[in-house]
Amino acid sequence: MSLENIGRAAEFLLVEDNPGDVRLTCEALTESKVKNNLSIVGDGMEAMAFLRREEPYTDAPRPDVILLDLNLPKKNGLEVLEEIKADPSLKRIPVVIITSSEAEQDILKTYDLHVNCYVNKPVDLEQFIKVVQSIETFWLTIVKLPSEVVD
């Protein structure tokens, strides 16, 4: 199922501690042709509480796509990714690493942990917006995602 035909807004979870990158991601998704909602958390501990619907996130929507930075406070992106992919109720949510790290060891480790894709953050403003919009287009209009969680 692609989300463009289901009659509801797509749900994104952005896990990012850099206010500038949060602002750019919000701008890119606001300009989108696909109806979407963006939830934002600033560290790895918050991300896991959000995904598990723990206080104060008991009413959090289930994300259709997670945009995850690697360099986070409290719990880094690798730890968050590992927990997501080990949890039967979360493991099918696509996780897109979007980071400034170009280190081969980071790329290898994320794919070993079953990340869905790894994207380097462009430093150019226009390119950053294009990358975020490309991620959205790919995951919400091209890719077929499961319609519900079934184990």
Rank of each mutant, 00 (worst) to 15 (best):
residue 59 D to H: 15
residue 84 I to V: 15
residue 76 N to C: 09
residue 19 P to F: 14
residue 7 G to I: 04
residue 8 R to N: 05
residue 94 P to K: 00
residue 26 C to G: 09
residue 121 K to I: 05
residue 52 R to V: 01
residue 13 L to I: 04
residue 40 I to H: 12
residue 12 F to C: 00
residue 136 E to P: 13
residue 57 Y to A: 08
residue 7 G to C: 06
residue 21 D to F: 05
residue 87 D to N: 07
residue 4 E to Q: 11
residue 150 V to H: 12
residue 134 S to L: 08
residue 16 E to Y: 03
residue 84 I to A: 10
residue 33 K to G: 11
residue 110 T to Q: 05
residue 114 H to L: 13
residue 37 N to K: 11
residue 12 F to R: 03
residue 59 D to A: 14
residue 132 V to H: 13
residue 31 E to G: 10
residue 45 M to F: 01
residue 72 L to R: 03
residue 12 F to W: 09
residue 40 I to C: 06
residue 44 G to H: 11
residue 76 N to L: 15
residue 42 G to N: 02
residue 27 E to K: 13
residue 17 D to A: 07
residue 14 L to H: 00
residue 75 K to S: 09
residue 13 L to R: 00
residue 63 P to D: 15
residue 138 F to L: 08
residue 49 A to S: 09
residue 44 G to T: 07
residue 16 E to N: 05
residue 104 E to K: 14
residue 37 N to H: 14
residue 50 F to D: 07
residue 48 M to E: 02
residue 38 L to E: 00
residue 79 E to P: 00
residue 89 S to H: 11
residue 113 L to M: 11
residue 145 L to M: 14
residue 33 K to M: 03
residue 28 A to G: 09
residue 69 D to V: 07
residue 113 L to A: 05
residue 59 D to I: 06
residue 117 C to I: 10
residue 136 E to H: 12
residue 132 V to E: 07
residue 6 I to G: 00
residue 101 S to P: 02
residue 113 L to F: 12
residue 118 Y to W: 12
residue 46 E to T: 04
residue 85 K to D: 12
residue 4 E to C: 01
residue 49 A to K: 06
residue 98 I to G: 08
residue 106 D to A: 11
residue 33 K to T: 12
residue 145 L to P: 11
residue 130 K to H: 09
residue 61 P to E: 13
residue 74 K to I: 06
residue 115 V to K: 06
residue 27 E to R: 14
residue 52 R to N: 10
residue 119 V to K: 08
residue 79 E to R: 08
residue 102 E to Q: 14
residue 87 D to M: 11
residue 135 I to L: 02
residue 96 V to D: 08
residue 127 Q to Y: 00
residue 98 I to K: 04
residue 51 L to V: 03
residue 56 P to I: 03
residue 89 S to E: 09
residue 151 D to C: 04
residue 132 V to N: 08
residue 68 L to T: 02
residue 40 I to D: 01
residue 40 I to A: 05
residue 112 D to N: 13
residue 82 E to V: 01
residue 43 D to K: 04
residue 112 D to Q: 14
residue 117 C to H: 13
residue 119 V to I: 14
residue 32 S to A: 04
residue 103 A to L: 15
residue 99 T to S: 11
residue 114 H to V: 11
residue 52 R to I: 09
residue 31 E to L: 10
residue 107 I to T: 03
residue 123 V to E: 11
residue 52 R to G: 13
residue 78 L to I: 15
residue 103 A to K: 14
residue 93 I to C: 08
residue 147 S to R: 12
residue 33 K to V: 02
residue 142 I to D: 09
